[in-house]
């Protein structure tokens, strides 16, 4: 390549030697900050790993159990003499459906109230705090309290999932309303429509398609979560799964996990399809 520069008298390549070294400039230019971050992360990692007490003897003992668990998947055993698995699955499904319906029914007024362009200030603040409250704690913690209050069983799970749905759905609904086209809303208002007519004609058509998609998505989430609320006593497949693990019935547990994965896959596919169809 050196010959090219010689053959090019017009360029400045002649007589100048170019640097033969190049280093990529670092992402963080300030060296103190850069090394500080690296060092800080290293120290954190060392501390975190150092303070993690692991009972290696117990881990070693458990390995055959892990092996047995994995072996239970190959092949999975769906023959279930007492029908507990299917009972649990169905209970979870019904729980998820009714929680989704109730949650959405409740979140429509909350969502309307939590939209700043729609509601008066005090309603807005009240609704926003409902949303924030139900979003802060995971469904499982809600479920623990629901179990304490309503007793064991699917009703507690239903309450926990409904509250979770309100936080999720009302927030998205409110955001959607706040982002909608203001000109369309104004046009309807200009016709002299009442508040309900206005919501029905100007807002509902704009937010409806997305909300239908989201409700299927939430049904999917509620089904998955129903497996978890059961572990703390909220009924459904989670309770079955918990019992199976308590009794070391790995065959049943593996079957339940595979069924959950299958149903979630179907729901995910269905919600994607429905969302495409609605829009």
């Amino acid at each position: 390549m050196s010959d090219t520069s010689a053959a090019n008298p017009g360029s400045s390549g002649v007589g100048i030697t170019y640097p033969a070294k190049w280093k990529k400039p670092p992402l963080i230019t300030n060296p103190t900050l850069r090394w500080g971050l690296i060092l800080g992360f290293a120290i954190y990692l060392a501390l975190a790993l150092g303070t993690m007490d692991v009972n290696w003897g117990r881990v070693w003992e458990g390995l055959p159990r892990g092996q047995r668990f994995i072996a239970a998947f190959f092949p999975p055993d769906f023959s279930d003499s007492r029908n507990v698995v299917w009972d649990g699955i169905l209970e979870s499904m019904w729980m998820a459906i009714i929680a989704t319906v109730a949650g959405i029914a409740l979140s429509v007024p909350v969502g309307l109230g939590a939209a700043s362009n729609l509601a008066p200030k005090w309603v807005y603040l009240a609704c926003r705090s409902i949303v924030a409250g139900s979003r802060t704690f995971p469904e499982v913690i809600l479920a623990i309290f629901a179990v304490k209050l309503f007793g064991f069983g699917p009703f507690a799970g239903f309450i926990a999932l409904s509250i979770g749905t309100i936080g999720f759905f009302a927030k998205l609904l409110a955001e959607d309303i706040e982002n909608m086209s203001a000109s369309q809303a104004e046009a309807i208002k200009a016709t002299g429509a009442s508040w309900f007519q206005w919501v029905n004609y100007a807002i509902q058509p704009q937010v409806m398609p997305r909300m239908i998609g989201l409700s299927v998505y939430r049904l999917d989430i509620n089904f998955r979560e129903s497996a978890v609320v059961g572990i703390v006593g909220g009924g459904g497949i989670g309770a079955t799964l918990n019992t199976a693990f308590d009794r070391y019935e790995f065959d049943t547990a593996a079957a339940i996990l595979l069924i959950i994965i299958g149903i979630v896959m179907v729901l995910e596919y269905a919600s994607g399809y429905l969302r495409k169809w609605v829009q």
Binding site: N55, V140, I231, A253, L257, I260
Partner: peptide, 21 residues
């Protein structure tokens, strides 16, 4: 994605024992 972390936790407590690991 389908299996919640609490369920994973349940399985792993059985295998490696309760705790941070």
């Amino acid at each position: 994605r389908s299996v919640n972390s609490l369920v994973w936790g349940l399985i792993l407590v059985l295998i490696v024992g309760p705790g941070v690991l």
